[in-house]
Design a protein around this nucleic acid. Structure first.
Lengths: 347, 347
DNA sequence: CATCCGGCCGTAAACGTTTACAGATCGTTG
DNA sequence: CAACGATCTGTAAACGTTTACGGCCGGATG
C-alpha cells in the first residue's frame, strides 16, 4: 500500500483484465457480474485514477491557464472570480500566472503552451500583442483567448478569440457626464502611454473633448503610472499648474484615489470645487469618501466572455475567430454629484 | 507537422536512439558530436518536451494548488501574491481553487490530491479542520500546508505543516490601543461563531476586556457576517441599543466599512465620538475616510510561510510536522487618532 | 597480440491509462 | 447438431518520457 492502487491492482483482485477494469470505470457496456466485481475491488482498494496517465493517453489535461499582469489588481481579481466557476463547472482546473506585465513572462507562458500542460489559455497582455506574441500563439496549437487589443492581421488558422472593451466609449461617457454637470475645465490624469490602455485613453480624451466642443489644452494632461502615489503626484502637479480646473478624469481608480488624497489635503471640496471620475469601477470606488464615480469597463463580463469563448472552442472544435466587445458603463457616485450620495452597497 | 515533434522524431533526424536524445536534452554526459547533432535536430524541429509524459515518468507534476474560500477576499489575494512568485522561482506552477468555504468543496480538493495532479497543496479551510479533512490529508500522501487552526491530535505520519496567526493577540492589541486612547465602552462586531476566526475573536474579546479590567457586557456584542452590509446592520443595531458606545472593534475590515458607513450616516464623528478598528489590514484600510486603524494578521507573511514550508518538504523530503505562527501587529490610522492623519501611502 | 577497462550508445522496460482488434463464450436459428 | 451472430473479454499497442542494463568500440597495458 506504499504506492496507490492502479487498474492493474484492481484487475488482479477482481480476476479480470485491465481492459475490463477500464471499461467498467468508464461506464462502457460490460456484463453485470464483471461490473460488480470490479466496483467492489475498486472500492475496497480505495482506487483513484491517476490524472497524469489519463492526460497522456487522452491528450488533454483538463487544465486552463489565466495569465495577467498582477493578481493584486482588482480588475484581474474580478476576472478570475468569473472565470473560475465557469471552468470548474465545465470540469477544468485553473492555473494562474502573474506576469508582472513583462513581455518576456507573457511570451514564456505562451511558449509554454507547447509543453501541453494546459488545454487552453486566457491572457491579458499589458503592453499589447507583439509580433512575437502572434508567433507564439500560432505555434501553440492550443486555443487562446486574448483580453485586450489584437492586431487585425492575425494569420489564418490561429486558434485565437478576442475579448475587448471600448475604452474610447468609456472615456466619452465620463466626459459627457462631467460636461452635463457643468464642468468645462476637465483635467486628465493618465497612465503610461506605452501601455495599450494608456494610449487608447489618451486618444479618447482628445476625441471626447472635441465632440463636446471643448478645447484641448495640454496643460490639463498629466502622464504617470497606474498607481495611487503616482496619481497623487500627477494631481498635485496639475492643480498647481491649472488651479482653476473643475474636474479630474482619471485613467483608473487607483489614480483617482491619489487625486482624492491631494484634493482633501488641499481642502478642495469634491465634487463642489473639483469633480473626480475614475475608471475600472473596482471595489475601491464604493469605499472612498466621497464615493467615486467610475467608468466600468466590465471586468467581470470580460472574464465571463473569455471563459465562454475558450470553452466553446474546446468543446465544439475549430471555428472562425470571434471577437466579443464589452460595452462600458458609468456608475455615478458621490465624487460627481451634489450633495454626495450615501455610500454604495455591500461589496 | 500536424502533431508536434517528439524525442522519436529528433532521434530519427539525428540518426541516434531516443535514449541519446533524452540524455542530451537532460545534460547527461554524452559525446560532443552526438550533442551537436541532437541539439541541431531539436532546434530545427522546434522541439518542446511534453510535460505530461515527463510527469508520468517522473511521478511529479511541478504543480501546487492553493485552496481558499474566495479569491475575491483581499486576505487571500495577499496570500496568492506572495505564494505565486515563490513557487514560480522554485519551478512550480500554481493552481487556484475557490471553495466558497463549503466543506464539501474543500474535501473535494483534498481527495483530489490522490489523482496526483499536483505535488502539494496549501489550503485554508474556513470552518476548521474536521475529522474528514484529517482523513483526506492522511490518505493524500502528498504534502499539505494548512493555513489556520489544526487539531493537535493529528495522526503520525500525516504530511502536514501548519501556519497560523494569533488572532487572540491581535484582538488584544486592538483593545489595548483603544483603552490607551481612553475608550471604555468598546463594542464588538463579530462574524459567524461557527467559523474558526469568528469563534476565536469572540473568546479573545472577552479575555482582552478582562485583562483591561473592563466588564463584559453582551449588549455590546453583535454577531453577523464578514461583509460590509452585515457590518452596517450590526453597527446600526448596536448603536441604537447602546448609544453611549465610544469604540467599535470589528472582526474584519469589511465589517468596519459598514460601521463607518453607519457612523457617517448618523453624523457621529470618527474617531471623536466613536473610534473604529478593523482586522486584516487589507488594502481597503488606507482608502476609507477616515483611514482605518486595523490589526494586521500578516496575510502576506502567512502566504510566504506556507509556501516556504511546502517547498521545504518537497525539496528535502519527509520530516516532523512544523507549525509557523505569525504575530499580529497593529497599524494605527485615522479612525482612532485625533486629528485624523492624512491618508496612507500607495497600495 | 590478447586482455582489460572506460566511455558511449542502443534496446527495452516502465510510468498508468484507453482502445483497436481478435478471440472466446453464449444463445439462437436453420 | 452445426453454423452463425451478438456480446463480452483479453492481449497488446499506444501516449512521450526516463533510465537500467548490456553491448560495442576505442585505447592502453601486459
Amino acid at each position: 500500500m506504499t504506492e496507490g492502487p492502479t487498474i492493474t491492482t484492481i484487475a488482479q483482485r477482481a480476476g479480470v483484465s485491465i481492459a475490463s477494469v477500464s471499461r467498467v470505470l468508464n461506464g462502457l457496456p460490460t456484463r453485470e457480474d464483471t461490473v460488480r466485481r470490479v466496483m467492489r475491488a475498486a472500492d475496497e482498494l480505495g482506487y483513484v485514477p491517476n490524472s497524469v496517465a489519463r492526460s497522456l493517453r487522452n491528450r488533454r489535461t483538463d487544465q486552463i491557464a489565466f495569465a495577467m499582469a498582477d493578481i493584486g489588481n482588482p480588475v484581474y481579481v474580478a476576472m478570475v472570480r468569473e472565470i473560475q466557476p465557469l471552468l470548474k463547472a465545465a470540469g477544468y482546473r485553473l492555473l494562474i500566472h502573474s506576469t508582472d506585465g513583462e513581455a518576456e513572462d507573457e511570451l514564456g507562458v505562451l511558449r509554454g503552451l507547447r509543453e501541453r500542460y494546459v488545454d487552453g489559455l486566457i491572457i491579458s497582455p499589458l503592453r499589447g500583442v507583439t509580433e512575437e506574441h502572434v508567433e507564439a500563439i500560432v505555434a501553440a496549437r492550443a486555443p487562446v483567448v486574448v483580453i485586450g487589443a489584437l492586431p487585425d492581421d492575425m494569420p489564418e488558422g490561429a486558434l485565437v478569440d478576442n475579448v475587448r472593451t471600448d475604452s474610447r466609449a468609456g472615456v466619452r461617457l465620463a466626459l459627457d457626464h462631467l460636461h452635463t454637470i457643468g464642468r468645462r475645465r476637465i483635467g486628465f490624469l493618465n497612465g503610461p502611454l506605452d501601455t495599450v490602455p494608456g494610449a487608447a485613453r489618451a486618444a479618447a480624451y482628445r476625441e471626447a473633448l472635441e465632440a463636446l466642443g471643448l478645447p484641448y489644452d495640454e496643460d490639463l494632461v498629466e502622464v504617470g503610472d497606474f498607481y495611487r502615489d503616482s496619481g497623487a503626484r500627477a494631481a498635485r502637479a496639475l492643480l498647481s499648474r491649472v488651479p482653476g480646473v473643475d474636474a479630474l478624469m482619471c485613467a483608473n481608480d487607483l489614480i483617482a484615489l491619489g487625486a482624492l488624497d491631494v484634493l482633501r489635503e488641499q481642502g478642495r471640496d469634491v465634487p463642489g470645487d473639483v469633480a473626480v471620475v475614475g475608471m475600472d469601477d473596482t471595489d475601491l470606488a464604493s469605499v472612498t469618501w466621497p464615493t467615486l464615480t467610475s467608468v466600468s469597463l466590465g471586468s467581470a463580463e470580460r472574464g465571463r466572455a473569455a471563459a465562454g469563448l475558450l470553452l466553446d472552442r474546446l468543446q465544439n472544435g475549430p471555428r472562425e475567430p470571434r471577437v466579443s466587445v464589452v460595452r462600458p458603463s458609468l456608475t455615478v457616485r458621490g465624487s460627481t454629484t451634489l450633495p454626495p450620495a450615501s455610500p454604495g452597497g455591500a461589496r
